[in-house]
């Protein structure tokens, strides 16, 4: 709790106490903690003298801010119409099968989270997804299997 308080207060000192500092502060929390917790929101609300609900509203609006802990690899599949028409649903079911989780969930080993996101700007190469900051395009179920297998192997090699 104290660590969190220090983190928030460092971020607030850096970005300021105005309401427009809320977003950079939330991004700062997301970067260090991988998600914005309830405690973090209350702390930010106190520092900026706004309501906790307002912080929650902003945090839930943005796809790239998470309000729950995510895995080491966050997979975000583009949910917009072009990717849908190019087979997004098959991509998602392949991911669900491989990772044994449903959309919106995180694997029990905390390695992978599977989410949808708004347009990634890769409509000409859909379906598209992001794994952390890395984009993958022209996806097929087969290609998805390879990508995930590569990551899994890398992970097992490390451990």
């Amino acid at each position: 709790m104290n660590d969190l308080r220090n983190l928030v207060s460092t971020l607030v000192d850096k970005h300021g106490r105005d309401e427009e500092s809320l977003l950079p502060i939330l991004q700062g929390i997301e970067n260090s903690e991988s998600y914005v917790s309830q405690e973090a929101m209350v702390e930010i609300a106190k520092e900026l003298n706004i309501s906790a609900a307002q912080v929650y509203g902003t945090a839930t609006f943005y796809s790239f801010l998470s309000i729950q802990p995510l895995g080491k690899y966050v997979i975000r599949v583009c949910k917009t119409i072009t990717c849908s028409m190019h087979g997004k649903n098959q991509v998602i079911s392949e991911l669900e099968n491989m990772l044994k989780i449903k959309l919106g969930e995180t694997t029990s080993d905390k390695r992978f989270s599977l989410l949808e996101t708004n347009c990634l700007g890769q409509c000409h190469k859909g379906p598209a997804m992001l794994i952390n900051d890395e984009p993958y395009t022209d996806l097929t179920p087969e290609k998805v299997r390879e990508i995930i297998r590569d990551i899994q192997q890398k992970e097992f090699a490390v451990n």
């Binding site: 929101m41 706004i50 906790a52 609900a53 307002q54 929650y56 839930t60 609006f61």
Partner: peptide
Amino acid sequence: SALTVAHKGKEMKISSFYDKPMYEVV
């Protein structure tokens, strides 16, 4: 600001902090 606009698009809703009961919030 006990009530806020949370989420977006078709999930958008009027919500309290973490959608807690009104009884538990400010």
